[in-house]
């Protein structure tokens, strides 16, 4: 598994360096903009969020392309590895990429010292950068990376289980269908008022009453335990079906 990770890392290394260096340069530009040219804190903050989201998205696409390569290349399919090792290696690659993006993002916000016009938002920022909420956020981000990657892998494995030019649509249907099904089951079990944190697609609008010290999920395990269980079961199902498709259905 680690050997496969090594070769995926090497394969993507140039693109990875470009993404990381570009992110660092953009973050640096935002910091310089704030301290040297007097850019508004809100603007710098939003800029940081945009850079962070874009770099994470690109790294997610790179991970997905690595999986595509794993499924469609002769020399990869010929390797004497179990399907579980192949899946785990891609998930690990996604987690490492996510951690890299998260490290840069947190370093940026730690250096930035933003001051908003709203006292509540300032307080939220202060709380979010404390160790416990920070670790909770990173764990949630990691969990979401794994569940989203597993869904992407399931969709791609389904796509590659078929032949013909319309097979990509089957993958899209699986992606949307599975996401909606998990969303529906979570609502059914927990209730419709619950924030559907784990669903990829969310419908509806939300109004948040920000009373931060009370609503932040510091005791996050208790707070999220039921949807977490559903998401964990969905994750196991996704990985099991992907494993089956890779072993029995995908052909070159």
């Amino acid at each position: 598994m680690l050997k496969l990770l090594k070769y995926n890392w090497k394969m993507n290394s140039l693109s990875l360096y470009i993404v990381l260096v570009s992110s660092v340069l953009l973050y640096a530009l935002l910091v310089i903009g704030k301290y040297k040219w007097g850019w508004m804190d809100e603007l710098v903050f939003v800029g940081g969020v945009v850079v962070s989201s874009l770099s994470s998205l690109i790294l997610l696409v790179m991970t997905s392309l690595s999986y595509k390569h794993q499924l469609s290349s002769y020399h990869r399919r010929l390797l004497p590895l179990s399907q579980l090792e192949e899946i785990a290696s891609i998930l690990l690659l996604g987690v490492v990429y996510m951690l890299l993006a998260a490290t840069l993002t947190f370093a940026f916000f730690a250096v930035l010292d933003v001051n908003f016009n709203s006292a509540e938002v300032n307080k939220a920022m202060e709380i979010l950068l404390q160790p416990k909420p920070l670790i909770s956020s990173i764990l949630f981000a990691l969990w979401n990376t794994i569940t989203l990657l597993a869904l992407i892998m399931l969709s791609m494995a389904t796509t590659y289980s078929f032949r013909g030019k319309y097979r990509a649509w089957i993958g899209v249907i699986v992606f949307v269908g599975f996401s909606l099904a998990v969303d529906y089951i979570t609502n059914l079990v927990v209730g419709p008022s619950y924030d559907q944190y784990f669903a990829f697609i969310k419908f509806g609008s939300y109004e948040a009453d920000i009373s931060l010290s009370e609503s932040l999920p510091v005791d996050w395990f208790h707070f999220w335990s039921v949807p977490m269980l559903i998401a964990a079961l969905a994750l196991v199902l996704k990985l099991a079906v992907t494993h089956y498709l890779m072993k029995k259905r995908i052909q070159l």
Partner: peptide, 18 residues
């Protein structure tokens, strides 16, 4: 298991561009 003892050379490259 048989992938450990079979060496296959297809008519397309078994290497990566990088």
């Amino acid at each position: 298991d048989t992938k450990r003892i079979v060496s296959y050379m297809p008519d397309i490259p078994l290497t990566e561009g990088w």
